[in-house]
Every structure is written in structure tokens, then in C-alpha cells.
């Protein structure tokens, strides 16, 4: 049986899974190193006008430690895609496999548990809990997923705040720090349980350019340290920080660009 085949663009595919490789051997290696497989995923939303397709058969894979940007214009389906990958939403058809686990077959609670251990989520609007201080915004993730002993929670949270450069504000509530600082806390929270992958939806969409670069530097260094980073953006400059960019248009992957 033939494992890899060439598509019309001269890119090797395994099944319908593309890694943007024009080299068959590298394509097979990528597949073997793959942490995330998005297989033929379709999603549409019901509106007053009927069903509107958001994703129409999207397939791609992400290697462990890879920094991937999902790039597209507004309405391209990128946020839908990252929501499906992070288990926040479910596809109508197709599969999302993370480390061999088909996450769309998990229940809502199982997906929460899975996220707690495997995936840190960073939202565009930070989504910190307003009544908790910064440390507690991080320890809540540890507490809920029970990944670490209780006695280590605060120490690790402080360490993560140091890592994102905001430890001085540890005891402040989110409302007392800037947007950029809040996003740093959100990243620290995403790292709370030391997940292998971080998924960020327009993480800098609400920030100025200087703050934006600071955030992207964090993602970049995380990728270098072995974390798999998936960032959704409509900003080419942001996409340029990634190892690989997946271009989305009208719910389909249109082309690949290698760095």
C-alpha cells in the first residue's frame, strides 16, 4: 500500500493529511512526529438564513514543538477551526486527533479534562476571572485539573508569572493591569498545567504593536522550549513569527507557505 501520495500542488499527503512537504520522506517523518491531526473537518452554523458553512473539509497536521499560525481574513473560519482543535466546539464531520485521541468523540466534560492536561487556551479578550488576583487566575487552572499537588500551586504560578515578566503584579486583580499584561497572565494560565500545546485565538488582536511583539516573543520562546503553538491571526506580521502558516479562505486551506 502506498503511504504518501502527491496532490495537484505537488505536495505530499498521507491520506488527506497535508504537512506542506514536497519531500515524501519528510512528509512521512512529519506524520510520525505529528501531535495534532485535523482530518477532513467540516463545520457549519445555523442562522436565520439557513446553514452557513464555516469549514469545508479542512485537513492538516501539526508536529510536536511546531509553531503554526492559522492565517485568514475575517470569516475565513480560523476561529471556528481553533475552537474545534481546542475542543471548545465540535465538528459536524471529520476528526481531530491529538496524540492519538480523537477529541471530538469525547464528551464535554472529557474534553474539559483533556484540555486541563493537554492544551492551554489563550483568548483574544484574555478572559481572566475578575474577582481573582493574577496568581489565583493561574492556580484556578491547576486546582480544577488536579495536575499538581496543592502545595505547589502558588509556587508554580509565581514562577509562570516570572516567566511572562509580570511577577511584580502577582497580587493585583486583572482590572488593575494593562491589556498586554492581562494577555501575559492568560498565557501563564495556559501554561499552568504544563500542557504540550497552546492554542491562541487572535492573542494580540486587542493589543498595540509593541505589546504584540512582546507576546509573540513569549510564544516563540515557548515553541523553542518544545511546546506546540497554534496561533490564529488575520495579521501577516503575527503569522510571520510562526514556523509554518496554514492559510484559510472560505473555510478551506488554500496554500502553504514555508518559512
Amino acid at each position: 500500500m502506498k503511504l504518501a501520495s502527491l496532490n495537484a500542488d505537488g505536495v505530499y499527503i498521507i491520506g488527506r493529511l497535508e504537512f506542506g512537504e514536497r519531500n515524501c520522506g519528510l512528509c512521512i517523518i512529519n506524520w510520525l512526529m505529528c501531535i495534532l491531526e485535523v482530518q477532513d473537518v467540516e463545520k457549519s452554523y445555523k442562522t436565520a438564513a439557513g446553514f452557513t458553512p464555516a469549514l469545508a473539509g479542512v485537513s492538516f497536521g501539526v508536529k510536536q514543538g511546531e509553531f503554526v499560525a492559522i492565517y485568514g481574513k475575517s470569516g475565513a473560519g480560523k476561529s471556528t477551526l481553533i475552537n474545534l482543535i481546542s475542543g471548545i466546539d465540535c465538528p459536524d464531520s471529520g476528526q481531530i486527533i491529538f496524540n492519538g485521541v480523537s477529541i471530538n468523540r469525547l464528551s464535554e466534560d472529557e474534553r474539559s479534562r483533556w484540555r486541563g492536561k493537554n492544551l492551554g487556551v489563550v483568548f483574544q479578550f484574555f478572559q481572566l476571572l475578575p474577582t481573582l488576583n493574577l496568581i489565583e487566575n493561574i492556580t484556578i487552572a491547576m486546582d480544577l485539573s488536579d495536575a499538581l499537588p496543592l502545595s505547589e500551586h502558588r509556587g508554580r504560578a509565581y514562577q509562570l508569572l516570572e516567566q511572562v515578566g509580570i511577577a511584580d503584579h502577582a497580587l493585583k486583580p486583572p482590572s488593575k493591569i494593562s491589556g498586554g499584561q492581562q494577555q501575559r497572565v492568560a498565557i501563564a494560565r495556559a501554561l499552568a498545567n504544563d500542557p504540550p500545546m497552546i492554542a491562541a485565538d487572535e492573542p494580540t488582536g486587542n493589543l498595540d504593536s509593541k505589546t504584540r511583539d512582546g507576546i509573540m516573543e513569549i510564544f516563540s520562546s515557548l515553541a523553542k522550549s518544545g511546546k506546540t503553538i497554534l496561533v490564529v491571526t488575520h495579521d501577516k506580521e503575527i503569522a510571520s513569527w510562526a514556523d509554518r502558516v496554514v492559510y484559510l479562505k472560505d473555510g478551506r486551506i488554500t496554500e502553504f507557505q514555508e518559512e
Binding site: D109, R113, R115, V121, A141, L144, R189, A190
Partner: peptide, 16 residues
């Protein structure tokens, strides 16, 4: 509601 969503997004299950 949004906080509930966030808590679930960071690993909280319904029974918690």
C-alpha cells in the same frame, strides 16, 4: 456564564 465557560476551558468539569 462566561466565567463558567472559562473555568471549563481551563480544565474544570461540570461536577466541580
Amino acid at each position: 456564564i462566561r466565567q463558567i465557560g472559562i473555568l471549563r476551558a481551563v480544565g474544570g468539569v461540570r461536577v466541580q
